[in-house]
Nucleic acid binder design. Structure first.
Lengths: 186, 186
DNA sequence: TTGCGCGGAGAACGATCGTTCTCTACGATA
DNA sequence: TATCGTAGAGAACGATCGTTCTCCGCGCAA
């Protein structure tokens, strides 16, 4: 038998991919079981309910997002470049064939009305992103009100790219971000 | 018996409110029937399926959105003010207690993977908004690439306000829009 | 070797969904 | 007035969902 941590990871990874591709409510627990290769009984011994699994998936996505953002920032040398790296990161993501929008925004639209736990997990991730941007803005020495403006650009790029189905929004948001940064530093 | 147009409107209005408040998939056709006071048989004679009703609700929302935007623009005298009126319109909307984010974004996150018709209706509305902004930018005499930047700000403000649960994003996006406009006109 | 406990597979359960069907009542027409 | 068509109310249907339960087989202790 596989150990608990491995089973947990298999379930979360499988659920993440299914939820992201088809939507959360469209995926039954049977489909998660088949994709993960872990029995329903085991799944329910690891997660008390589907809601709890959804929250675990969102936390897993948060880790991936954070790691991707950090990797993109590593390639930058200045604070300004680290901010713009966010939009390069988005650009690369939007071009992936599997891109279907921000999983947090999608899940929020789907379940925030019916699950406080899910809404809370999404809010947490977005608030962490806001804090990340605020840190970069502070390192740049720009006024703090620049940070939410840049975060709004990033959010808007994600929904625009998802709905329009083209990656242009990343580049457009990047240009806007440069303009906002320059104006804030003047 | 009430005439067809009236029945249609009652169903669409009731469905719109229910879908927006609780999410589309969380609302059964029975609930629509009860809220609208129109029998299931009648509903299915007006709409071939729930999917078709969803699309009708999205078109109804589009009309409301367009009318609200037009009313906000009426209060402005210059092209620049008409653009900024978008964000004032968002601000007032975000402060409504019933605000639960953009219905188009929410519905897209919920159903775009399972219904092409729904995804198409959402894409149509967003594309119309982009065209509206592009028209204002052209009237302003600013370079056309300003338009998608402003649209991204508006989209980002909507998701940010919905998830964070506070209306600040409208004001922040408005300030950013002013900066972008000024930079584009220089 | 013989019990025993635990995990896997998936059947079963109760609820709910979208959609259709049945039955009844009423209003218009000849 | 008698008859027919139609609409309303809601039961019914088949599918599917989240969750639990049953049964079977395998690995380990004495």
């Amino acid at each position: 038998m596989i150990d608990e941590a491995t089973a947990r990871e298999k379930v979360v990874r499988a659920a993440d991919e299914l939820f992201y591709t088809r939507g959360v409510q469209a995926v039954g627990m049977d489909a998660v079981r088949s994709a993960a290769g872990v029995s329903l009984k085991r799944i329910y011994s690891l997660f008390a309910s589907k809601d709890e699994l959804i929250v675990a998936v969102l936390r897993y996505r948060t880790e991936i997002w954070d790691a991707g953002l950090a990797a993109a920032a590593l390639r930058a040398t200045t604070a300004r470049e680290r901010i713009l790296a966010i939009f390069d990161f988005l650009d690369a993501w939007f071009r992936e064939p599997e891109f279907r929008g921000c999983a947090f925004i999608n899940t929020h639209g789907e379940l925030s009305a019916s699950s406080d736990a899910v809404a809370g997990a999404v809010r947490e991730q977005k608030s962490a992103f806001q804090a990340y941007v605020a840190g970069l803005v502070e390192a740049l020495g720009a006024p703090p009100q620049l940070a939410p403006q840049l975060a709004i650009l990033a959010e808007g790029a994600q929904t625009t790219a998802a709905i329009a189905g083209v990656p242009d929004a990343a580049r457009q948001a990047r240009v806007a971000a440069e303009t906002l940064i320059d104006a804030a530093m003047r």
